[in-house]
Structure formats: C-alpha cells, structure tokens
Amino acid sequence: MHRLLAALLLLAAAAPARAAAPDPGTPAGLTALVKLIDDRQRNQGDWKALCYLEAKEKGKTDVVSELLVFRRDADDKQLFLFTKPKAEAGKGYLRIEKNLWMYDPATGRWERRTERERIGGTDTRRGDLDESKLADEYDAAYVGVEPLGKYQAWHLSLKAKAGVDVAFPQVELWVDQASQNILKRQEVALSGRLMRTAYYPRWKKVHSPSKGGEVWFPEEMRFFDEIEKGNSTLVLIKEIDLRPLEANLFTKAWLEARSR
C-alpha cells in the first residue's frame, strides 16, 4: 500500500499557472526550469482528488482501488481515504509532517507508520513523502533536447549536492518543451543502476477560482520498477476539486467520524 501512496505523493499536487518558458541551455534558464518543476509540485491551496490506483506485482494479484486524496499544502498535510473496493472502503492514511498514520474502520485502530516500520516488499522511499526540493537538493545539468515519442523534451540530469541526504543520488528528467510538464523521470542509485522510471503522459489544467488562475495536474502516472521487473503502478486522477477543505479535516477525529 505504501507503494501506491508514494506514487500519488510524487506529483499529485496541483501545480500553479504556467510561467514563461525558461531556456535550460543557459545557467539561469536551467535554474529557473528546476525551480518551476519544484513549484509545480508545491501549491498554496487545498484540494481533493478522486483517484484510481492499480499496482501490479509479479506473482501477486493486482491491487486495484479508488480513493480520495485530500491535501493542504499550507501545512504539508495529506489524507488518503479509500472508497473502493468494498473491503478497503474507509481505510485511511493520514500524513501530518513526518508522521504517517493508518486507520482501519473495521478495527477502529490507528497505527503509526514510519520509515523504520515500513512493511517489507513495498517500495516507499525516503523522499517520496517529502515535497519536491530538487533545486535545493540537486545540481542540475542540461543534457540536451531529446525526442520522446512525438514530443521534444529537455533532458536534465540532476546530481545530489554534497552533504545532502537524498534517497537517490541521481535523477534524470525529461521535460516537455512546449508545456514544461515532466514527461519522464528516472531515479538512479549510487552504483549507476536505474531503480525506477515514471511517465506522465497526460496533463490537465483547471481554473482555480480561489487563485484566479490555472493549476496543472498529471491525469495519468505510470511507475515502473526497474529492479523488480514486472512491478508497476498506474495512478489516474479522475476528478479534482479545488474548493477549500474543512479546517479539521487532517485530524484523527475527522477520519474516525467518517466511520461512525
């Protein structure tokens, strides 16, 4: 289950309106582009989304579920609330800063999940649960323009800055020239081994009345595990709701009340 959450957390945040296209060929343009990518994963408002998750793991039954994702960027809180299938409905993951809580309505119990206590076999990684800080954590290099199917993409290679503790020492990004949306992301281990590839083939923009501008979100995300071949995760964001959320939504009491 962590794997699915990790997938969602990666880019599900709505992104602010698009800025003027920076040119990564120049140092200033490159910095501006990486900052833009960070900004697109950071948002100053509330939102909730109805999502679909599908995880395939070799030799296991596919995990298929529908869930609601609630997020408040202002204080970095998230709630994942499963709605389908029936057996999963009502189960929730509440994330408050570094704390990840899991709630099961059938048992009425909360359980703390931390990095130390993660369950074997899931591929949650340190950093997945944090907001994007590419500009702070990595030094970016511009590799060039590369075709990705019918699109022209800027290929950026990011290497971790000295002394910064990150999950992956190297990240490769392919950013669509026309829309400046990420199309592809690869995470590479210190040994140079490719660990995970992600694709973002469809983006949506939506007008946010509260912000008076457009926000962007990836409608489809696909994650492929490069170590355990055959393991993959699909995330579809079906609907997004930008209205403000209840003030006490990110509390245990709110989630408990849903199952009473």
Binding site: L81, S179, N181, R202, K204, K205, H207
Partner: peptide, 15 residues
C-alpha cells in the same frame, strides 16, 4: 490517444 494537455473544470466531489 489523448492530447498531452487538456483543460477541465473543478469538480464537486461528494465524499
């Protein structure tokens, strides 16, 4: 099948 970018409207999700 689908274009890279589409415009949509904010939904009113009834949780």
């Amino acid at each position: 099948s689908a274009p890279l970018v589409e415009t949509t409207r904010t939904a009113a999700i009834d949780d």
